[in-house]
Design a protein around this nucleic acid. Sequence first.
DNA 1: TTCCATGCAAATCGTTTGCATAAAC
DNA 2: GTTTATGCAAACGATTTGCATGGAA
Lengths: 128, 128
Amino acid sequence: MKNYSRQREEIIKVVKDSYNHPTAEDIYIIVKAKNSSVSRSTVYRNLGVLVDNKIINKISMQVGPDRYDYKREIHNHAVCTKCGKVFDFEYHFNYDDIQKEVKSQTGIEISNNGIALEGICDSCKNNI
Amino acid sequence: MKNYSRQREEIIKVVKDSYNHPTAEDIYIIVKAKNSSVSRSTVYRNLGVLVDNKIINKISMQVGPDRYDYKREIHNHAVCTKCGKVFDFEYHFNYDDIQKEVKSQTGIEISNNGIALEGICDSCKNNI
DNA sequence: TTCCATGCAAATCGTTTGCATAAAC
DNA sequence: GTTTATGCAAACGATTTGCATGGAA
């Protein structure tokens, strides 16, 4: 990350303070509401930079726009493939062992971000 | 799934015969090449139906279009977040226990599709 | 003869890009 | 003063939709 900018600071703060896996648009709205001017492209550009610098995670979705998550302790995600809601959950995966296995079988060096699983949430299951 | 159609049959066959996690566009090209006429919308519509009917899986990507995978034995995916390539790998996760934990912590009923992990593949790591 | 699926083109959604201006260092 | 970031609007890629037509039960 090169130059400081007010916008970038604001964006980081918003993601850090959001515990609900906001979308780029969510973040844009919140930053604007704080009477700080930003443009959508600045939000997208900075989210990209922050992901590259491993300050935040990007969660890609089966439905709807991508979501972002500030990196704290490792935790896992359960994503609803109907409505796109994201929940955190705890589970003791053996990350080191998994990492080693994946590396040897596929060559992929997995990022230690927790594991994302998919399914259908309660309210989606009932509202059909 | 309601009515049979030649196009749907072709699409299923193509996904079943592809072991490289094709995109909707890939599938469209292949079906057309078999001199069967299809439109892109038919491909997208049928892929949606097939996912809903749990005949195929949809893999959502951090980069590039979604990919599809015919459902066979359970296996896991390792996805490169730079180039979007998808690799299969084997690992003995305790799916039942994970499923139970996720359900009780989040309310999400996870689909038994294997687990997808993300990272950077060998060739992307070297080409920077 | 009703219902469902197709094909086309237009529309939509999320995101990226080019370019001129402004701010950081 | 050179580099890097911004804002705007336009472009883009992937996917969805409306509507008229064709095929299946």
